[in-house]
């Protein structure tokens, strides 16, 4: 009986070890590998769905949160402590709806709040969009939405006050560099 219990205990520990390996070992291994990769300065980056932009100088790509694709794509750039996220996706509605959807996705997170009025914005290629500001605990941010040829682009960037202030110009330039359509 004792040997049976001991065998059962050893097998139980083996089961627990494998589950712990999957639940905690793999995430620990993942955390041990850096996810930020430098992006070449001045070179266009394809987000997906035919959308591309020029990332700010010095930005790094967070490959763990970047998902390229034919029909839609997401990219997350890191500029110091500032997170700059761009998402391209097919969209059948109008610009107001894209903007509302983005605003809703921001405010759905507890502690995130949209601030002030929305303003028109335009890319260098002439695509019209709308932008506004938001706050989250300890961070300030901006969101922008664009729509062209059935493809919507949702942009957010946020960081601590000082960091965001220092990077704002470079981020605005990058947003204005957004182009639609495959070349």
């Amino acid at each position: 009986m004792r040997s049976r219990l001991l065998r059962n205990l050893l097998w139980s520990l083996a089961v627990l070890a494998v589950l712990a390996g999957l639940s905690f070992g793999l995430p620990a291994l993942d955390n041990a590998v850096a996810s930020a990769r430098p992006v070449p300065a001045g070179v266009r980056y394809d987000i997906g769905a035919g959308v591309s932009l020029v990332p700010p100088v010095g930005a790094q790509l967070d490959v763990a949160h970047t998902v390229p694709g034919e029909d839609e794509g997401t990219a997350l750039f890191l500029l110091g402590g500032v997170r700059y996220s761009v998402r391209a996706l097919p969209f059948t509605g109008g610009l107001d709806e894209v903007t509302a959807q983005l605003r809703e996705s921001i405010t759905r997170t507890r502690g995130y709040q949209v601030t002030g009025a929305e303003m028109p914005v335009r890319t260098d290629a002439g695509v019209a969009g709308r932008q506004g500001g938001y706050t989250s605990p300890g961070r300030q941010g901006r969101y922008c939405a664009f729509l062209a040829a059935g493809t919507a682009v949702e942009v957010t960037f946020a960081g601590g006050d000082l960091e965001l202030h220092d990077s704002l110009q470079a981020l605005e330039t990058s947003v204005q560099s957004i182009t639609f359509g495959r070349s």
Binding site: S23, F24, P27, D30, S35, A64, T66, V67, P68
Partner: peptide, 24 residues
């Protein structure tokens, strides 16, 4: 519950060790 954590970790590792396109 195990898969929620493990799948995300493997996905991220593929993105880091190979490429985001491969992981996608």
């Amino acid at each position: 519950a195990t898969a929620v954590r493990g799948d995300a970790a493997v996905h991220d590792l593929l993105a880091k060790l190979v490429s985001p396109a491969f992981a996608a």
